[in-house]
Design a binder for these strands. Structure first.
Lengths: 212, 212, 212, 212
DNA sequence: GATGAATGAGCCTTCATTCAT
DNA sequence: AATGAATGAAGGCTCATTCAT
């Protein structure tokens, strides 16, 4: 009996995980409108109706997928040990970390790309939840800027919001627009060398900007 | 007067223009997959079949829309008079110009956003044409870097590709992700003040980076 | 009673049968290109999408319809008890049987008419399946010719393929071309008398031909 | 001036001929419903609207195409010199002629195939005209049967209508159903040998039937 | 006589979603 | 918890036909 219950419970979690995983890939590769519920079911190897049983609608499934991806990023950022170094070094380490994270987990980039095309429709309907998830982003940057004012390793007139956006922009833009940039600049951006060159360039840019 | 009447019917150029304009808006607000041909026809106030008569398919219409938007940007960049100033000033002027252009004409940003979601499917099938349209982008930046080496107003180790990407990234990312950023950072980025603050921040970032 | 209620909904076999029946009529009266999936759905009193759920495409639905019609004919032919009579009598009985079958089930004639207009597109893509279904046709005729060589009731130089085609041609042509023949010969061929006259004529023709 | 007029006249006839020729092919390969007016225009290398200018509608174009094809056959039959031989030989010569005609001009077969699918819709609306065109068919056969009664080379109980249908059926069926027969009997019927074998078989069948 | 532009109706197919078990 | 059957509303695209010159 207990086993039965336990098994079902585990299956529930497992099934949901499988669906979310499949959804992540489908939404990432096709965007919200281009994604197909049928395809998600096939990828997850579950009956289509189960998706509705667990997530109610395609929209809601997208929201959950987005939440999960956001959480994963923020969690990884918070796990960084930045207190042992100067604010300047910490910010560059943050840059490097986020770059590596996005390269390995590009899904968030494309989920957000699609979400912005929809003018933030989903995120708007779940403002508070998303704010809670992402609060640590601004918080961390704000904290590092304060620390910089103390250890004098960073210029003092910086704004946390601008810093967040600039870092994210420099990183995300080149990953997300890899396809079109390659054909506009006639330069392959997908190779390992191109990627490490890009990271260095970003660190240099941010480094120059934030130093006192 | 007679001209006015004549203009509204049986005018190939005008009809095509109306369709492209409508397509621009529809694709911009919904992405390729989310866009509806019916809606484009309605926006353009033409019979839906006319779209197929002139553009053959939704895919091809998207390609033409994308081409036109790209051309408009590149043309505007090339019209800039950058030879009268130092390379350093020229680049910052370029930054400011592109920022203003994208703020006023955000369609290209969203068209590309959708296109990247599709892994550059359309642009890839028309490589040469798109390369021709965009060649001036890299060309201009390359030229300014060379000039910088002469007038010593720019550091010498910069790479034109990286400069292109960084400038575009800093500008485009904040416009394109306005919706999600607002809710992640709990900071309204759509106001005039926020926008001019952002531009200053970008100019400062690029300025710090490129100075010798 | 309960069975009756149960039967009408959620019954795969029954639903498929209804669709196939409706398809048979629609394809028969309009040919493949002229047939409308909407109309088939209406005739079968099912949701149009169900047709795609069960049969994938209009082409595949046509293939299944054709298969079923072929099977019905071959099955009926094989059920004939021809071993108790001479080869000569057997062949004439076969002629009479096929005539009656086609008069009562003209759908196969028109399905094939349409299929031949398409140069056998569908049948070609399912060669093996159709060959399997129809193998008994040639087999039966071949068997009767052999028997005829033994019981000396049939001339010996006959070819099974030619016999198959001639019998089918004499029967099918007059049924299939009833409309145009009536107006070309100014003679009503649809009446019962005309039909029985035609059958006698065919039997006489075949009889004269095959007798030793 | 006269030249100008003449040229236009000649062009008119020539254009109509080009359209009819293209229509013949398109209708033959796709049937009435499957045929595309666009395709006919392309084949004929004329503007689509010209087709409507000359023929009013797709239906009417089909009627004209059918008429022309019928006329060509009847004309060729009437040109046969059958009076110098016995009725028996004349009928077999007729069989051979029609076979050769249909093999070289299969369009009529497929036009009629499509027309019968439509239950003779077009032919019915132009009864008289088609009857006039085809009257010689029955007439000729009737004449030969009468002659046979005189020269005693043919059995006396034959019916002209049945004779017409049987001859046509034996010939047309194997040409029209070549595609499906090949796959049902697993025997290639398109080769030259297969064709001449078929003709011999038909002549034998008819020959056996009509001899006294 | 000849052409390009324009239209409305309709066609095959797909999609997100719900029903019934 | 899980599944197969069923649905209504589009969606991209095509077709025969007409308009205007």
């Amino acid at each position: 009996m207990a086993e039965q219950v336990k098994k079902n419970t585990r299956n529930t979690t497992e099934t949901k995980r499988k669906i979310l995983n499949a959804a992540k890939k489908e939404f990432m590769y096709h965007g919200f409108d281009g994604a197909r519920v049928d395809e998600i079911a096939a990828r997850a190897q579950v009956n289509k109706q189960l998706i509705y049983y667990y997530f109610e609608s395609k929209d809601n499934l997208f929201v959950e997928t987005l939440k999960q991806s956001y959480k994963k990023l923020r969690k990884a950022e918070q796990a960084l040990d930045l207190d042992t170094m100067s604010a300047y070094e910490a910010i560059l380490k943050f840059v490097e970390h986020d770059w590596n994270f996005y390269v390995k987990n590009p899904e968030l980039i494309f989920l957000l790309s699609s979400e912005n095309l929809l003018k933030g429709r989903h995120i708007k309907e779940h403002k508070e939840e998303f704010w809670e998830i992402n609060a640590s982003w601004f918080g961390l940057m704000h904290h590092l800027l304060e620390k910089g004012r103390e250890d004098k390793t960073i210029r003092e007139d910086l704004d946390a919001v601008q810093l967040c956006i600039s870092i994210a922009g420099l990183i995300i833009f080149s990953i997300m627009n890899e396809s079109t940039l390659s054909y506009s600049l006639m330069s392959d951006l997908s190779s390992k060398e191109a990627k490490s060159k890009r990271l260095e360039s970003i660190k240099q840019t941010i480094g120059c900007w934030i130093k006192p």
